[in-house]
């Protein structure tokens, strides 16, 4: 039981609809971007399942590939990949606002920062692809 108090402070919370973000396109994209977090977690689980199968045996690895090719897994992966793409695009676009990059004392233009990240993505992708498939 709480002890009685002389004064009770009551804060008024303006009620807000659970569906507030469906009213505007920008709000909707914001919430979709935040929901990409679920799909990032899904891919962590998916990749861990892959690593686990490779660690077990060749047959387990083949089973993983077969499982990953079943229609429902492919459907989930397609949806998840769409959310991941949204994350990539929004993340790169936000970087110039989050980071103050200076080259020779001059503020680097936002477009250059965004473009350099796509170059980074391409280089990393090419390297990982080479490492795995060589």
């Amino acid at each position: 039981m709480s002890t009685p108090r002389a004064t009770e402070v009551r804060v008024y919370n303006r009620p807000m609809s659970t569906w507030w973000w469906t009213r505007r396109r920008t709000y909707f994209v914001f919430v979709m971007r935040e929901l990409s977090s679920i799909f990032v977690a899904w891919f962590v689980g998916f990749l861990l399942a892959f690593v686990y199968s490779v660690g077990r045996s060749e047959a387990a690895y083949q089973d993983f590939l077969d499982w990953a090719a079943t229609p429902w897994v492919v459907v989930i992966n397609v949806i998840a990949a769409a959310f991941l793409a949204l994350h990539v695009v929004t993340w790169f676009s936000l970087t110039p606002q989050a980071m103050d990059v200076r080259i020779g004392g001059q503020k680097a233009p936002a477009a250059a920062i965004i473009a350099s990240q796509y170059v980074g993505l391409a280089v990393v992708s090419a390297f990982v692809l080479w490492l795995v498939t060589r």
Partner: peptide
């Protein structure tokens, strides 16, 4: 990491 490394891993292992 999600923006730079995850896309290529997903491309390979999920598709």
């Amino acid at each position: 990491m999600a923006a730079v490394f995850l896309p290529v891993l997903v491309f390979m292992f999920a598709f």
